[in-house]
């Protein structure tokens, strides 16, 4: 059992600082922010991934844990106080280490686009690797985000999701103690 591994040492302050990192990342797509320093989550979760989930998930949030993250299931259930949602199509949050088909996740409805899923995707590294060019609200001018671990055809896989706006999935990328976000509003091209 890995539930013995601790969660946030100071839940109030760490949830707040992780949230601010996340909020800033979501408001400025592609900006890399730090979160989760000091956390020792079970494999395969990185500290930033764990910090995002500890910050946002509780019994009122529907989290789907992809098969590749299953070893961390008990830890997440215990520390987030949530029962995982087996069906990714109805989940509000999905945590994975490999990019799922975005069309299989909830994109929300026209009247409630906020009911769409947030995909928390753990990648190998942020700040190095393939360049992706981002444009949209939050960006004064197009920005470059470098990611190691996204599929080569990521831009093509993202485009239909972006086209759904105001519906669509929002993406949070995590690696080590870094995170970045790509809301549905962002247009992505290979940089």
């Amino acid at each position: 059992m890995n539930i013995d591994l601790p969660g946030f040492a100071d839940p109030v302050a760490q949830a707040q600082s992780s949230f601010r990192a996340l909020l800033d990342a979501m408001a400025r797509p592609g900006t890399i922010r730090a979160a989760g320093a000091g956390l020792m989550p079970p494999s395969p979760l990185d500290p930033a991934t764990a910090a995002v989930l500890l910050t946002l998930i509780d019994g009122d949030a529907r989290l789907h844990i992809a098969a590749d993250c299953a070893p961390a299931r008990d830890w997440l259930v215990f520390h987030c106080g949530t029962m995982p949602c087996p069906d990714p199509a109805t989940a509000g949050f999905v945590v994975a280490t490999a990019l799922p088909d975005l069309a299989t996740l909830s994109a929300g409805s026209d009247e409630a686009p906020e009911s769409s899923a947030t995909l928390v995707l753990q990648v190998a590294a942020l700040g190095t690797g393939t360049k992706w060019r981002l444009a949209g609200p939050g960006l004064k001018e197009p920005a470059i985000l470098r990611v190691t671990g996204l599929p080569d055809d990521f831009a093509a896989r993202w485009a239909p999701n972006h086209a759904l706006f105001p519906r669509g999935v929002d993406l949070v990328l995590c690696a080590g103690t870094a995170l970045a976000a790509v809301p549905r509003t962002v247009a992505i091209t290979e940089g």
Partner: peptide, 22 residues
């Protein structure tokens, strides 16, 4: 903290859908 989490989830969606009332 539970209330804050609920509001924080709403805030992130609000930022992702500029101008939409969550």
């Amino acid at each position: 903290e539970q209330t804050k989490r609920m509001i924080r989830r709403a805030l992130l969606k609000a930022v992702a859908i500029p101008g939409h009332q969550v």
